[in-house]
């Protein structure tokens, strides 16, 4: 465990909590893509099946349970408690365009052709693209609430910190995981355009709106 990894995990947790706090306090999930949140729940559910098979550490176990719980609470908020505020008309990304290639790729490129490993691989590939419905929704409406942009910033920062973690681990432990690394790079690239807007607009006190 290195400093990049722990900061990455905390940044991920902070992103999830920011989103929940936003919905809780405003009693609204406007501007949030329910589809992206369903994909993230699917990512956690397929990746953390190992909770039933292996014990890695108490830290690992607790964090996995927290991520899973938070992601299901988020879905309950969007499609249950706050469904009247859900902006369905602008959440129009076609999930099959992501799911079909991701399922195909996980069958083609994996470490082992066994169910748990295929599900892990699927979750890694899916996570790389799971934010696209949210980014698509922002480009549909042309704007995002500032709190939503903080959520996206910490979610992107998490993956960027994981890249630093992998470089660190390669140099110190000779550890590498090419599936995670390549997907992580792709995932981080999706945030670059957003990072630029976040730094040039949101941090200067302006609302994020697209030209």
């Amino acid at each position: 465990m290195n400093v990049f990894r722990i900061l990455g995990d905390l940044s991920h947790l902070l992103a999830i909590l920011i989103l929940l706090a936003k919905m809780w306090r405003s009693k609204s999930c406007a501007g949030i893509s329910g589809k992206s949140q369903v994909l993230f729940a699917l990512v956690f559910s397929t990746r953390y099946l190992d909770l039933f098979f292996v014990f890695i550490s108490l830290y690992n176990l607790v964090m996995k349970v927290i991520y899973l719980l938070c992601s299901y609470i988020t879905i309950y908020m969007i499609y249950g408690k706050l469904r009247k505020t859900y902006d369905r008309e602008n959440d129009t990304f076609r999930l099959e365009f992501l799911l079909i290639p991701v399922i195909g790729l996980s069958f083609l490129e994996n470490y082992d052709f066994i169910p748990t490993e295929l599900l892990w691989t699927f979750s890694i590939y899916l996570e790389a693209v799971a934010i696209l419905p949210q980014l698509f929704m922002i480009s549909n409406t042309g704007e995002a609430e500032t709190i939503t942009t903080h959520y996206l910033f910490f979610l992107g920062l998490y993956r960027a910190l994981y890249l630093a973690n992998w470089i660190w681990r390669y140099h110190t432990e000779k550890f590498y995981d090419q599936i995670a690394i390549i997907s992580g790079v792709v995932q981080t690239i999706f945030y670059c355009d957003f990072f630029y807007l976040y730094i040039t607009k949101v941090l200067k006190g302006k609302k994020l709106s697209l030209p």
Binding site: Y67, Y176, A180
Partner: peptide, 10 residues
Amino acid sequence: QEPSKTHDEL
């Protein structure tokens, strides 16, 4: 070294 199959990251 082969990539680890116990995935210890989150």
